[in-house]
């Protein structure tokens, strides 16, 4: 009985963990005019190579370094390590060609930001999606 309880708990934990780390999705505010976007366009917006999505100005907001959302987004969608990313931005920043996206915090902060500004685009864990945001890209 005790053992099966433990197993159940372990299973539940595993399930919840895999649910929490379902992966990063790109989101905009629920009322944003930005519609569904391709993965490559989302990547371009976050690398400063593209400034709009479907004609609507798109300003990327980043999560803090070290957040699981940021790790998932850059490793699976942008496919760059943190060091490669830093190196990439340092080349643009110090040639005056661009600035890395604003860093705003974690999933909750990104939701807070994008839901108040229709031009912002962020990424959050899929499990954190709620009514305040809409998903524009899911890998």
């Amino acid at each position: 009985m005790k053992l099966s309880n433990k197993i159940l708990t372990a299973l539940a934990l595993t399930a919840s963990v895999s649910f929490v780390h379902a992966g990063a999705v790109a989101v905009v505010g629920a009322s944003s005019p930005i519609g569904a976007a391709s993965g490559s366009d989302v990547v371009k917006v976050f690398l400063g190579k593209k400034k709009d999505l479907g004609g609507v100005t798109a300003i990327p907001v980043d999560q803090d370094e070290g957040t699981p959302g940021r790790g998932a987004f850059y490793s699976t969608i942008v496919k760059k390590s943190e060091a490669q990313l830093k190196s990439y931005w340092s080349r643009l920043i110090f040639t005056g060609k661009g600035q890395a996206p604003q860093v705003v915090g974690g999933d909750a902060d990104v939701k807070g930001m994008v839901s108040t500004n229709p031009n912002l685009i962020g990424y959050i864990d899929e499990g954190a999606v709620d009514g305040t945001v809409k998903v524009v890209f899911k890998p």
């Binding site: 830093k86 340092s90 080349r91 110090f94 040639t95």
Partner: peptide
Amino acid sequence: SEFLDVGYS
């Protein structure tokens, strides 16, 4: 040239 000073890059 343009990022020669930025050794990190």
